Simulated assay, not measured.
Amino acid sequence: MSDIETSTVSDEGFSSTSQVGDFELTIDATGEEGPTPQQTLVADYASCYLPAFRVAGQRSDYDDLGKVQIDADADMDDNDDVQAVRFTVHTEAEIDDGDADELVEKADDICHVHDALREELHAEVDVNGGAF
């Protein structure tokens, strides 16, 4: 048996609905009825990276980062393939630059989506501590 099972259906057009456990997710290649697959990929990456960053903080004596927000952006080529991803991590807690680099390195190792992507798509990460 697989660890993850989903079912994705499209009755017509380019929009599809995926059943993931008890949740439904609509993705639309045209971006009209939901986010595109590329947008979803970047959002999934950020949503995995954020808790990884929190765990990295806990492992580095930043037990309470407070509010954390990741602003993500990506570049696509002429074929609409994602070519580069960038994260700006904003934290309520103050983090000095040296510690921020350490947290990013640890979060890279913890984030499962980061690990699953080809190295050229690993996010370039900037951290802004004390942002809130």
Rank of each mutant, 00 (worst) to 15 (best):
L50G: 05
H112L: 15
L65D: 02
E32P: 03
C48A: 10
G57N: 09
D44R: 07
D44M: 03
A56V: 08
Q19D: 14
L121P: 04
A131Q: 05
A84M: 00
S60M: 10
Q38M: 11
D77L: 12
V68L: 03
V55M: 02
G21I: 14
C48H: 06
D77W: 02
D81T: 01
G98P: 13
E105S: 07
L117S: 03
D11P: 11
V127T: 03
A52T: 02
M76A: 04
E124D: 10
L41N: 08
H90P: 12
E119V: 08
P37E: 07
D44I: 01
P35R: 11
A107I: 00
E120F: 04
Q38D: 15
A46H: 03
A116P: 10
Q39G: 13
V127Q: 01
I70N: 00
A46K: 01
A100D: 06
R118S: 09
D78M: 05
G31M: 10
G98L: 10
D22R: 11
T88R: 05
S10M: 08
S47G: 08
A107L: 00
F14P: 08
L65P: 03
D22N: 07
L117T: 02
A43G: 10
D73L: 06
L50T: 01
V89P: 03
P35F: 14
H122E: 00
V104S: 00
E120L: 05
D11A: 14
E24I: 15
D126G: 09
D80H: 13
G21N: 11
Q19S: 13
T88L: 13
A46M: 07
I95V: 09
V127K: 01
S2F: 15
R59L: 08
V55P: 02
D22K: 08
T8S: 09
M1Y: 14
D61T: 10
Q58M: 13
S10F: 11
V85R: 03
D99H: 14
G129K: 06
T26E: 10
T30K: 15
A52C: 03
F132K: 10
H112G: 14
D63K: 15
R59V: 06
Q39S: 08
A74S: 12
A84F: 00
S2L: 09
P51I: 01
V104I: 07
A107G: 02
D44A: 03
L65N: 11
V85E: 04
A29Q: 06
E102I: 13
T8P: 10
L103V: 06
S18K: 12
A116Q: 10
F53R: 00
Q38N: 15
F132D: 14
Q83V: 05
V20H: 11
G66A: 13
C111A: 07
A116H: 05
D97W: 13
E120H: 07
E120V: 02
E120I: 03
D22L: 05
A56F: 02
A46E: 01
S2P: 11
A107W: 00
